[in-house]
């Protein structure tokens, strides 16, 4: 009887370990799979041709991804330029100035915003943004900005909360105004976390697919202004995956674009998570 229970306990432990390893290795598995599938196109054409040529003619076997890469950068850039000031200002307002009750009211709203599916943001973009700015990088950027705001602002508020109130008191007791205290002490102390939040938002914007796809126009050319249409990498994958099997190397090229997304996003995520873990740990030590 006792042996039975102990045995069960041990078997369960081993199963859990196995599942953990399996789940964690899925990250490596995806990475390996993407590399494996994108090798053919890398072997056929050089890296520089793939990344820096704008000749995209799958039927001729030309896979220059510059239009897609630059569209992705444009859209992400626009969204960050819009979202970051909004997030920093609101996060400071909500955590430093606003009454607790306002924070309690707005925090759920931010969380709800975070839970809204990508497609819905796309529909909203079609209804409200596209009629104003057309199918363009700007429309994509605006929709993306609204999508990443909740992610970024959430991290920022959490990080600003970790700044000890004694530090504020120290600055205030020297005769600094509240704003000076925020500017020179709170923001400075929270800066690594604020950056981590922005990078997290950046990586979210990078991979966002459906919403952008619906409003950005999907025209294969390098955009020259925010009013141009664009064709970001995720949209490329989503739009062409169905037909990729009929054209040689097409699937490999699409996998390469998935690989590019994967690598950038993993790097960004590791960077920001490590910062956030360190902040969390420091808070643990302090209190």
């Amino acid at each position: 009887m006792i042996f039975n229970r102990v045995l069960k306990d041990k078997i369960a432990g081993k199963t859990m370990l196995f599942l953990t390893i399996l789940a964690c290795s899925s990250l490596l598995l995806i990475f390996a799979g993407l590399i494996f599938k994108s090798l053919p196109v890398i072997e056929k054409s050089s890296f520089s041709e793939l990344l820096f040529s704008s000749k995209w003619h799958p039927l001729k076997g030309e896979f220059g991804m510059l239009p897609f890469i630059s569209s992705t950068l444009w859209v992400t850039g626009v969204s960050i330029i819009i979202a970051v000031p909004l997030c920093i200002l609101s996060a400071i307002y909500l955590s430093e100035y606003a009454h607790k009750r306002i924070l309690q009211l707005i925090f759920p709203i931010i969380d709800i915003l975070a839970g809204i599916p990508s497609v819905i943001f796309g529909v909203w973009g079609l209804i409200l943004i596209v009629p104003i700015f057309g199918y363009s990088i700007l429309s994509g950027g605006i929709v993306l900005a609204v999508m990443i705001v909740p992610v970024v602002i959430h991290v920022m508020i959490e990080v600003i909360k970790t700044v000890p109130s004694e530090l504020r008191d120290a600055s205030l007791s020297l005769g600094a105004t509240k704003w000076q205290t925020i500017k020179f002490v709170v923001v400075k102390k929270a800066l690594p976390g604020i950056i981590a939040g922005i990078v997290l938002g950046l990586s979210r914007a990078f991979g966002e697919t459906m919403a952008v796809l619906m409003v950005v126009g999907n025209v294969v050319k390098i955009p020259h202004s925010v009013m141009d249409a664009g064709y970001p990498l995720p949209a490329l994958i989503a739009n062409n995956y169905g037909e990729m099997m009929s054209i040689p190397m097409y699937d490999s090229a699409l996998m390469l674009s998935a690989l590019i997304l994967f690598i950038i996003i993993v790097v960004f995520n590791v960077f920001s998570r490590l910062i956030l873990i360190r902040i969390e740990r420091n808070v643990g030590y302090n209190s």
Partner: peptide
């Protein structure tokens, strides 16, 4: 913490990458 970090990274990977990977498999 390593496991948690791994899950955080997996969380960040866009679903289009999961979809494309799944389709390939």
């Amino acid at each position: 913490n390593i496991i948690r970090l791994t899950f955080d990274i997996l969380w960040g990977i866009p679903s289009i990458v999961y979809g494309a990977f799944g389709f390939t498999i």
